[in-house]
Amino acid sequence: MNVARYWRTEKTRYGLVGETCRVCGKPIFPPRDLCPHCTEAGQDLRTFGGRGEVYSFAHVTDAPAGYTEYQPYTVALIKLEEGPLLTAQLTDVDQSDVRIGMPVEMVTRKLKEEGENGMVVYGYKFRPVMHE
């Protein structure tokens, strides 16, 4: 990830900052130029609460370049309480404990490092809910 892209998307990655469509009122994540629901332009920023559940998942044992250090890990589709569906890694959970419908919460973690001289890329992951 180059520096400009990192900087441009960091609020979204660090803290689940997305949008609400001004026209149809639906929540949008990640932010987009046009609403994926009504195709109108114009949204307001909003921070999602970070709670959701596992919609589907896959265990990764042969990770793509840049992520091999962290394998094996689990990638999941997370259905946020507010509605949007997003892709994220799960963390702090054993693979055998992952199940569809599992309540999860967002944490900010290291996604990868761009080599010894590069940036540390931080972003959202999800873990089993530990606080009600």
């Binding site: 963390t91 900010t108 540390v120």
Partner: peptide, 9 residues
């Protein structure tokens, strides 16, 4: 700390 944790996280 886990592999994805550091002082910042």
């Amino acid at each position: 700390p886990g592999l994805d944790e550091d002082t910042a996280t």
